[in-house]
Design a binder for these strands. Structure first.
Lengths: 129, 129
DNA sequence: CTGCATCCTAAATGATACTG
DNA sequence: CAGTATCATTTAGGATGCAG
């Protein structure tokens, strides 16, 4: 399943085979934000789309299926009109929520510093050319 | 810079504007693994490529530039023959390392359970069709 | 060894229209 | 409302060749 011959994350014993695919899922463009958006409880499809902002209906659907496949979120359909579908973190998803929120908080705490770094980097490039 | 009109991660005050771009960088397919691979100290280009496994030269170069631009890693060129280039986490990168390693450890701890979930999900789909 | 440039393919994503 | 399906576009990614 993994192309490279050497271990992906050798620091975690021999079972690192799947660690990589898990990281790839977590490292999806939207997964972190989806999981983070569900931290306070279940949300329905449209609410989730609003909370994330900028994600298309198609991408949200696809990513939700992926996360559901991995057992990180659950999908509940209510037989009503109009139909209502709620997504919620599973127990497994909640355990992932802890490190994910740490990461989101880190991003929030350091976002302006990174912004500064980017500007400095870009400015230095202009000076070279 | 962000398409969606509503706040990206509203749970973090008004400065959530850049949080999203930071999360997108962190959520890059390779960034997590690159940062994780540097946790024990500096690595040169080829060593990094081996440690990650499966990443092409081009992608590694590009991702390293991105991380360098964000001030997360530093690039040091040694004037030798053959040339040697070492990449190392900056102070900012080290602070990110903490939550990143938590995430990697989570992935390692739960990879087999997720693998099971995936198989169950796929099996259930076959039963439907 | 490092890494940039180029070409080319595969995958991700957006827009739109349509269905239960 | 919550999708699915399709098409068109963009982007990521790999392969190769060349340069410092």
């Amino acid at each position: 399943m993994f192309p490279g011959p050497p271990a992906a994350c050798q620091e975690h014993g021999g079972k690192g085979r799947f660690v990589r695919s898990v990281l790839e899922r977590i490292g999806d463009k939207w997964s972190l934000m989806i999981i983070g958006s569900l931290h306070q409880g279940p949300l329905r499809f449209s609410a989730l789309q609003q909370a994330i902002g900028g994600i298309s209906q198609r991408m949200l659907t696809l990513n939700l299926r992926h996360l559901e496949r991995d057992g990180l979120i659950s999908r509940t359909v209510y037989a009503e009109v109009p139909p209502r579908v709620e997504y919620e973190l599973t127990e497994l998803g909640h355990s992932l929520l802890v490190p994910v929120l740490d990461l989101v908080n880190w991003a929030a705490d350091h976002s302006d510093r990174i912004e500064t770094q980017r500007e400095a980097y870009d400015a230095a490039l202009e000076g070279e050319s």
